[in-house]
Amino acid sequence: MNLLTISGSPHVHGKESVQKIMWGVVVAMIPLAVASVLFFGWNAVRVMIISVAACAILEWLIQKFIMKTPATVGDGSAVITGLLLAFNVPSNLDWWIIVIGAIIAIGVAKMSFGGLGKNPFNPALVGRVFLLISFPQQMTTWPKAKELIEQVPQAITAATSGATQAIEVVADATTGATPMGIIKGGLATGQDVSDVVAQLPDYVGSLIGQHGGSLGEISVIAILLGGIFMLFRKIITWHIPVSFLGSAFIFAGIMHLINPGLYIPPMYHLMFGGIMLGAVFMATDMATSPMSSWGQVVFGIGCGLLTMIIRLWGAYPEGVSFAILIMNAFVPLINRAFKPKRFGEKVK
């Protein structure tokens, strides 16, 4: 007869597992991956494959030969890091730069802290910021709009009514710069806000994602689809995305009201740049976000404000990565300061 087992209660376990959560996130990224392939063509596939493969192989190698622990590549977290890294770089990036990014992301930001769940900073963002600082030339040379249009299948162009016009705007306007770059560059050279705005793609175009930028930041709709899926699967909660976007919107709105001649309307700040990708996929990373709901709200607000400060007054046109990384550093503090309300605790 089999031996009886003794263990502490509870004797049943929920259906959730790390694998399911991680692969759930990967599934949520599929619309974004598809969108990036549609807009950037096979180059996007190239970038994603290199990045994911590099991350996964690196994690396996490090666990096998340096940490000598059982391999956990199967849990999918390396795939997430790889995809996020790919989403954060331009589609024409050289393969070796991507691999360096992967080494930094997995090797330095994740495994050196002990692997899954122990990293204080979002690995993909660390990789991305490292690349941005080390290879500013390559990291900010975005694929030209003309190429972009050639690679958009005709069917899609026809299907999205009214999008044709948007593409033309893009084709005329973006010559290798992202909308955030246009705004920053335009305002820096003393152009009026209305002139700058005129150069930007319209809302419909940006919702679908037809403007320049890194792989994953362009298509707002695809990001929202993934976000809704993750909310539905209870992988993320609404707190971080809503407070992140909300605080950024309000801050940008206030600045716009104060001086409409200097600051563009707040909607543009949400539509362009990496803020959507950051708010939905990167700030919500479980390991690097606070535990309590209130903590998450504070974290989101911090991210939103920092993003806007960097965007409006910083040297870089885009500030999402830096904002999230800075707030990551605050997470342990936030965790201790904002605790969940205890049952039976005195209410004032």
């Binding site: 790390v18 959560i21 479980m286």
Partner: peptide, 20 residues
């Protein structure tokens, strides 16, 4: 497996504690 700091225990705790 490693704790992934998903905060599910914190959400589930009926006493509002932080089990992790």
């Amino acid at each position: 497996q490693n704790c992934i700091r998903c905060a599910k225990c914190t959400t589930a705790c009926p006493m509002g504690l932080e089990p992790y």
